[in-house]
Amino acid sequence: MLLRLDTASSSPLHEQVAGAIRRAIAEGECVPGDRLPPARDLSRALDVNVNTVLRGLRALRDEGVLEFRRGRGVTVADGADRRSALLDRVRDLVADAAHLGYSKNDVIEMIREIP
């Protein structure tokens, strides 16, 4: 799988790692059910500390993008590709809102008001 790490961005490294995997899933580099390379391999390839990679992977598990299974390693969750794309749009939305002076709660209120 091809991974693009956005080194120019100012966000923390573990978020960049999560972003690289999110993008790979969104672009179809790996499909639901695929096994991700072990964290050690990712760490060597990306030249990032293995704990940082694990932190990124755990964030993706909490988002429901990845599944950790004992003995099977880390796999891409069902529907992760669509969910991941949707989450990207939500993230953009929150960023745009912040730019315009609206907080996350304001955005949540706006979504609630939509019939």
């Binding site: 091809l2 991974l3 693009r4 790490l5 080194t7 961005s9 390839a45 990306l46």
Partner: peptide, 11 residues
């Protein structure tokens, strides 16, 4: 693109 580290892994 500049500002991106692109890597590839396979098993």
């Amino acid at each position: 693109p500049a500002g991106q580290r692109v890597v590839w892994l396979a098993h």
